[in-house]
Design a protein around this nucleic acid. Structure first.
Lengths: 314, 314
DNA sequence: ATCTCTTCCGAAAATACGTTTCAGACGTGA
DNA sequence: TCACGTCTGAAACGTATTTTCGGAAGAGAT
């Protein structure tokens, strides 16, 4: 083949060699096979049917392979491909691969069942992933943008930021504090409830306190938030229960979402995903608003870490 | 090619179970490109990016055509295809056709734009969510189930488990340790590299060490892992760079995926999502295998926490 | 029946494509 | 600067696809 684009030159040929029966369609191949079948010879029909019946399998075969599988010859395979509207077998094969991919992706089972004790690993991974993705979508959908903006505003102009979280939420709290620190804000995460309260009473108007609790009822987190609230700090609650006790002391409430929980997958686990998304949104919001400071700070912290990596880099 | 990377583990393995370099994934190609890109040469990167950027267009090209379009040679194109896990260009091309079909059929993951400084909050939330969801899907797609199973097996029968991680990964390490502790395993996360090494040398055969590092080159994490490795512990690496230095000392490698990173969203941020998914999978796998112990332990820890919540419940 | 014309088919030649090899180019560290 | 290792593309090579071509199989016609 002399570069396959020579075939269809778009410019009118002297004598139309072929009416150009059909453009190589992507998906509706089975239909094409059916309409063309009557005008095909026996061998060609075998090829066409095989191909329509198992696109994925056939896509993996070479001309020779397909010829063998259909008990025909290479020439016949090529002829069939031509008849179906492709320049040659190569292109039919490409279309086949596409079709297979479509079919595969369309057959998304969208598992929603609980993870159970005897699920195989592949199932676990699929379900878990599906759950997390769902949680993210839910969270994003339920996020109150106004509250988010307001929270970002408060953080940006804060003199000092305290973040409270215990248990699983403590990691999220640390994550937020760590990130804010990296772009030059004074942020600290408190896991110890006593220290948290001790620090909370230091906060003043203009400072910000963030409480992260899925249940909305974690006293270890509510107490410091209340202390901060009482001392005039702006308070933000990141919680899965917008009606929880914690919101009583929160100027801004950011609601996180929860996936179904099961025995093997406690609520704490899925709430984390949701909380992290909210926290990331906060962070990026702040980074945007303090871009002048944040950008160099981000670079600086990257540079500072470089020597902690082994030297060999490409 | 004769198995050109045998991955020197430093310790002779019983019998190399075939590294199984990578399954030729169907859809998650962009992800693969991203994870592999850093370890590619310039020319290869050009090819990989071109391919990831325009799957449909590239699927129509022959090796020569693609080489021309990327300003490289056929050899480089083939090399790139190999690096991405395909036997050769032919198969990459097939995958490309599949990807193109998927995108065309509307199930298009498509490329989302970077988050920029002046995006409104709603945009930020949308993009961030999209990115995270994509990262999850990519990670799940690229997860090596065999490695996962093996890792779970090692964890289940471990006398003691150490988890190493610094920076953003330290939170993930803590998360894993916390969870394993909750179901009765002896797990500890080490953030301080000195303490980590000190503890690592205590490990013996049958113990497990887990290193979490996105870059695969974080010395603070590699050193303790190596120490553990040298002392006969089973080692697991959770990294975004399957070719990174850390894998030299890892019996099992779990690859995390990377989202596009932007100025406002450094790699550390998106890698966290991926790492957490992997860690969750490990945890659930372990919980399944130790169900007898895990279930009561999970309940017990829930009960223990109950009194830390304010009494009012609906 | 058999001849002939037409259609269909596959073996093998011809060609395009993909893969491998190899030597030079390039960058890097000493 | 040199030596060394890595990256790269040109060209040789092997494989897959396409084309050619001769002959087999069927359908009428005599």
């Amino acid at each position: 083949m002399k570069e396959n684009f020579v075939r269809r030159t778009g410019r009118p040929r002297p004598v139309a060699v072929a009416p150009r029966p059909a453009p190589p369609e992507p998906g509706a191949l089975a239909a094409k096979v059916r309409t063309m079948a009557p005008s095909m010879t026996r061998s060609m029909q075998r090829v066409a049917e095989t191909v329509a019946g198992d696109p994925a399998g056939c896509a993996a075969l070479t001309v020779t392979g397909l010829a063998e599988r259909t008990g025909t010859s290479e020439a016949t395979v090529v002829r069939t491909a031509r008849l179906l509207g492709y320049p040659g077998y190569r292109d039919l094969r490409l279309a086949l691969a596409g079709l297979a991919a479509q079919q595969a992706s369309g057959a998304a089972p969208a598992v929603t069942a609980d993870i159970s004790v005897d699920d195989p690993m592949s199932e676990v991974v699929a379900k878990l992933t599906q759950d997390e993705r769902q949680t993210l979508a839910d969270t994003a959908g339920a996020l109150d943008l106004a509250q988010l903006e307001a929270s970002v505003g408060a953080l940006v102009s804060a003199r000092r930021i305290d973040v409270y979280g215990t248990g699983a939420s403590s990691l999220v709290a640390q994550d937020l504090a760590q990130k804010l620190l990296r772009i030059g804000l004074i942020a600290h995460a408190h896991a110890d409830p006593h220290l948290a309260v001790t620090n909370a009473v230091q906060l003043r108007t203009g400072d910000v306190a963030v409480a992260i609790t899925h249940s909305g009822r974690t006293v270890d987190v509510i107490e410091p938030l209340q202390a901060a609230f009482d001392h005039g700090a702006t308070t933000i609650a990141v919680t899965g229960r917008p009606d929880g006790e914690v919101t009583q002391y929160a100027d801004h409430v950011l609601t996180t979402s929860t996936a179904r929980e099961s025995e093997l997958r406690p609520a704490a686990m899925s709430s984390r995903t949701s909380q992290l998304l909210v926290v990331d949104c906060l962070f990026i919001g702040v980074a945007q608003r303090t871009y002048e400071r944040a950008a160099p700070a981000l670079h600086a912290s990257y540079e500072a870490l470089a020597h902690r990596h082994s030297p060999r880099e490409r």
